[in-house]
Amino acid sequence: MSIDSLRITAGKHFQLKDFDPAAKPCTTGSKAGDKERVDALSIELDLLQDKLYAMRSKRLLIVLQGMDTSGKDGTVRGVFRAFDPLGVRAVSFKAPTANELARDYLWRVHLQVPAAGEIVIFNRSHYEDVLITRVHGWIDADECTRRYRQIRAFEEHLVENGTTLVKCFLHISKDEQKKRLEERLADPLKHWKFDPKDLEERQYWDAYAEAYEQAIAATATPEAPWYVTPADSKSHRNVAIADILLHTMTAMKLAYPDPLAGLADIKVT
């Protein structure tokens, strides 16, 4: 298995058409095998998270973006279920409030970045401000270009201050989205997931694909890479994200802090 084919660190020649949403470069070969692989990886990730929390000097920010139904919620449930809740936090960005709109668009995002020793998962993120805003014409091309520059600077600032960034685009096909929306309509237990606005946004599929392509191309850097993760298969998606996290957290060189001097001489009475 390899995640190298998913990593984007420079966007000069990046095009989404070069990535197959049905590809399975990280699969074990079966859905059951994929689930077992995620379970095994969860044990390794749990230990790495424990070290990160104990060190209290490094931070990890995971950005999940994708079309509606691409599996952002499912990724959080499937990949992070074994993590210690004391050290991990999921943040879902909805339409900005009046209070948030009164400030710059990155203000509400900076409030939610991880503290020392913490993992934060962004379910949608600051990238909404160059996606939906661009697709619906709420900002023009010049403003979008300025925001790309501001986002690169924001992420560079986070990295320089001890935050490791992992940005995952959950890549699904239009046909797979149709299938998942139909499943939500057909299953009473999934009705709560269905939002009529999803059908409205689906009409802008091509515009969103172009907006994602441009945003990824403009903001992929070696320090804040994007991973274009095939997500037509839910089990493969989870294996891929878990593999990406294992690779990333291993590279962070996490370790338990040295014991206090004289700890061996302390006696509990």
Rank of each mutant, 00 (worst) to 15 (best):
L6C: 13
G11Y: 04
G11R: 03
F14T: 11
K17E: 01
A22R: 10
P25G: 02
S42K: 04
L47A: 15
L48A: 04
D50M: 13
M55G: 13
M55E: 15
S57L: 10
L60D: 03
I62A: 00
G66W: 03
D68E: 11
V76L: 04
A82F: 00
A82W: 01
P85Y: 04
V91N: 01
K94Y: 00
E100M: 10
L101M: 15
A102S: 15
V109W: 04
E118R: 01
E118T: 03
I119G: 03
I121L: 12
N123L: 06
R124F: 09
E128Y: 02
D129S: 08
L131S: 11
I132Y: 02
T133W: 10
I139P: 03
D140M: 05
E143K: 07
C144F: 00
T145G: 00
F154W: 07
F154H: 04
F154A: 04
G162D: 11
T164N: 08
L165T: 08
V166E: 07
H171P: 14
I172E: 03
K179D: 07
L189M: 09
W192L: 02
E201I: 02
A211Q: 06
A211W: 08
Y212M: 07
A215C: 14
A217E: 04
D232C: 12
D232M: 11
H236Y: 05
V239N: 08
L246E: 04
L246D: 05
K253Y: 01
P257A: 08
A261S: 13
L263T: 15
